[in-house]
Computed example of a mutant assay.
Amino acid sequence: MSTLAWFAFASLAAWAWLLLGQGFFWRTDQRLPAPRDGGHARGEPVARPRVVIVVPARDEAGVLPLSLPSLLAQDYPGVAEVILVDDGSTDGTGSLAVELAARRGGLPLTVVSPGEPDAGWTGKLWALRHGMALARARGPEFLLLTDADIAHRPDSLRLLVSAAVENDLDLVSQMARLRAESAWERLVVPAFVYFFAQLYPFRWINRARPRATAAAGGCVLLRTGTAVAAGVPEAIRQAVIDDVSLARAVRRAGGRIWLGLAERVDSVRPYPGLGELWRMVARSAYAQLRHNPLLLAGTVAGLVVVYLVPPVALVACAAGGDGPAAWAGGAAWAVMAGSYVPMLRYYRQPLWLAPLLPFTAFLYLLMTVDSAVRHHRGRGAAWKGRTYARPEAAPER
């Protein structure tokens, strides 16, 4: 066989393993667990523990009118309130939050401003530190950590608490449904969640004996006592990938974790162009690889073999008469596209995007390399006017 045929068969073998041996990552059926006691209606927790919602916000005036009112309007049957931490905003985020609360009513809102982060802290975790400290003074059993661009349906908090209480979970996290309206968002966003699930299969995370650990930072319900036992956020103060770091800290403290796709939690942040999406991925891609050049090289090689070889083998070898390479490449491409279909359906996108996954993977390859280049040039993870030249990666499991 030709060299390309060997690579095509290697890709096909990799896809057979990914399809069956990687926690069925491609399935989208991991949703909020129902209460264990069938005598209670879904979403009606037996207990009604006190909850404080903590929202770190930096220059979020553009999305706050779409997200904050949804938190204030939660129909949670227990005691709940919202603390918004204005993290050095220059666009009037804090005053807008106060205005929205006065106009819309609902849950009580407190706005605080902690000032610039101390050395060794990332901005979001610095904001969470102050918000969580203020929240703990209220004596809540649970903290809901949610980003300023996340909108919640009115029953979101009730369903989250129900899942945590009835299933004895310490951390319940939902991957918010990201916006996928522009052409670039439709091409890149569903793949972002697909790749995340491939790296951290939700089924493995949610098992009684977990094989992976992760969370989605946009929506995390966390037991206050577990947060204290895990020493967060102080224990992860330098983490750029703060959600995964948080989950690992909770797991090390003996906490039980659940992660799934959201049905009633949505991101309202727009990414209309490729540049915005590129910066979102490049900000943390190299940190995910622990800033290790060998891991970077292995990742690039893996992306090439798994995602790029199949279409190249099919097109090049079909034209050149290399039957084995064309057959193996076509089969691998078909399996790849088929595994992407459930995520496209979840995002309500046309299925003709599935065969374009190799092109999207190529974009992610370039974003990852660019992330490494930025790091080695000292620009590290840049976000909202702050740059972390050498941020810490998520700690090991």
Score class of each variant (00 low, 15 high):
127 A>G: 09
128 L>C: 12
128 L>A: 10
128 L>I: 12
129 R>T: 06
129 R>G: 08
130 H>Q: 09
131 G>T: 03
131 G>S: 11
131 G>F: 02
134 L>A: 15
136 R>E: 10
136 R>V: 04
138 R>T: 12
138 R>S: 14
138 R>H: 12
139 G>F: 03
140 P>G: 03
141 E>W: 01
141 E>I: 00
142 F>Q: 05
144 L>A: 06
144 L>W: 01
145 L>K: 08
145 L>E: 10
145 L>C: 15
146 T>F: 08
146 T>M: 12
146 T>Q: 09
148 A>H: 12
148 A>Q: 14
150 I>R: 09
150 I>P: 10
150 I>S: 07
150 I>Q: 09
153 R>E: 15
154 P>E: 11
155 D>Q: 12
155 D>C: 02
156 S>A: 09
156 S>D: 04
159 L>I: 00
159 L>K: 14
160 L>G: 11
160 L>S: 03
163 A>R: 04
164 A>L: 08
165 V>C: 03
166 E>R: 02
167 N>D: 15
167 N>S: 14
167 N>H: 11
168 D>E: 09
169 L>A: 05
169 L>N: 02
169 L>T: 00
170 D>M: 02
171 L>V: 09
172 V>T: 01
172 V>C: 02
172 V>E: 05
175 M>V: 11
175 M>T: 09
176 A>D: 06
177 R>I: 13
177 R>H: 14
178 L>A: 13
178 L>H: 11
178 L>G: 10
179 R>P: 01
179 R>I: 00
180 A>F: 01
181 E>D: 13
181 E>T: 15
182 S>P: 07
182 S>E: 07
184 W>I: 08
184 W>A: 13
184 W>L: 15
185 E>Q: 13
185 E>W: 10
185 E>N: 15
186 R>I: 02
186 R>H: 07
187 L>E: 04
188 V>T: 04
188 V>I: 14
188 V>L: 10
190 P>V: 08
192 F>V: 00
192 F>A: 10
192 F>Q: 04
192 F>D: 07
193 V>F: 04
193 V>K: 07
193 V>L: 13
193 V>E: 13
193 V>Y: 06
194 Y>P: 05
196 F>R: 10
196 F>M: 12
197 A>H: 08
197 A>L: 12
198 Q>M: 14
198 Q>P: 00
199 L>K: 14
199 L>N: 11
200 Y>Q: 08
200 Y>K: 08
201 P>Y: 02
201 P>C: 11
201 P>L: 07
202 F>Q: 07
203 R>Q: 08
203 R>M: 00
203 R>G: 13
205 I>F: 03
205 I>Q: 03
206 N>G: 11
207 R>C: 01
207 R>G: 15
207 R>A: 15
207 R>P: 00
209 R>W: 03
210 P>Q: 05
211 R>A: 14
213 T>W: 06
214 A>M: 13
217 G>Q: 14
